[in-house]
Amino acid sequence: MDAFRSGNPGDPAFRVKRYPFYLLNRLVSRYNSIIDQRLRAIGLDIPSWRVLMILGESSPRGSREIAEAAVINLSTMTRIIQRMAAAGLVTTAPSPDDARVTLVALAPLGESQLAEARQATAPIFAHLTNGLDPDDFDRLVALLDRLHDNLEPLAPKAG
């Protein structure tokens, strides 16, 4: 059976288990379930972990930039950041360049939580990618990026 036909929901040959987005959702759901358990054991949830990981790359960052990187809408991200600031994981301040922008930075407690979260989640990543060589991994990332980019012209415009 033609792979594209069996993965195309508009084709009578469609099979759910050949649909890339079903497979991606299934993978992400299982991954999040496992990660959630590990993170909760160290006092974190997945949204906070995402913020810590994003800030671990570059801190401070604007809350809108964090929301986009975390794939969480801005109003929800604002609440997550407020909760994290109250817990002492991050600090917030208006941007000196634009007072409308809130800059979020890792606090010392957030840095230690990030280190602990990395230790908790790294073995899961290692297990998940077991058997993939670096070229396989690079191809996987490139294919996922290509699929994302293919959807860009169809995405609703922010307004």
Rank of each mutant, 00 (worst) to 15 (best):
M1F: 09
M1K: 05
D2Y: 02
A3K: 14
G7I: 04
G7D: 05
G7W: 10
P9H: 04
G10K: 10
D11K: 03
P12Y: 14
A13S: 10
A13G: 02
F14N: 06
F14T: 06
R15L: 15
R15M: 13
R15N: 06
V16H: 09
V16I: 14
V16L: 15
R18P: 00
P20D: 05
F21Y: 14
N25D: 13
N25R: 11
R26N: 07
R26I: 00
R26A: 12
L27M: 09
V28A: 14
S29M: 08
S29I: 01
Y31D: 08
Y31Q: 12
N32L: 15
N32K: 08
N32G: 09
N32A: 07
S33I: 01
I35L: 15
I35A: 15
Q37Y: 08
Q37D: 14
R38E: 12
R38D: 04
L39M: 03
L39F: 02
R40W: 02
A41M: 05
A41I: 04
A41D: 15
G43D: 05
G43Q: 08
L44Y: 07
L44M: 07
L44D: 09
L44Q: 10
D45W: 02
P47F: 10
P47V: 13
P47R: 10
P47Q: 11
W49M: 12
W49S: 13
W49F: 15
R50C: 03
V51C: 07
V51M: 11
V51A: 12
L52G: 11
M53Y: 07
M53G: 02
M53Q: 12
I54S: 06
I54F: 01
I54K: 03
I54C: 01
I54Y: 02
L55T: 03
G56K: 03
G56M: 03
E57I: 03
S59L: 07
S59I: 06
S59M: 07
G62N: 10
G62E: 10
S63F: 00
R64F: 15
E65L: 05
E65C: 00
I66M: 06
A67G: 01
A67C: 00
E68V: 13
E68Q: 12
A69G: 01
A69H: 05
A70V: 13
A70P: 10
A70D: 11
V71A: 15
V71Y: 08
I72Q: 00
I72F: 01
I72G: 00
N73P: 12
L74N: 05
L74I: 14
T76E: 12
T76C: 03
T76W: 05
M77A: 11
M77S: 10
M77G: 12
T78W: 05
I80F: 09
I81Y: 01
Q82R: 04
A85H: 00
A85Y: 00
A85C: 00
A85S: 06
A86R: 11
A87V: 01
A87K: 14
G88P: 04
G88Y: 01
G88S: 06
G88C: 03
V90I: 08
V90H: 09
T91Y: 02
T91R: 07
T91E: 13
T92D: 05
T92Q: 12
P94T: 08
P94D: 08
S95N: 09
P96D: 05
P96F: 02
D97Y: 01
D97P: 00
D97W: 00
D98Q: 09
D98T: 04
A99G: 04
R100W: 01
R100M: 07
V101N: 15
T102D: 00
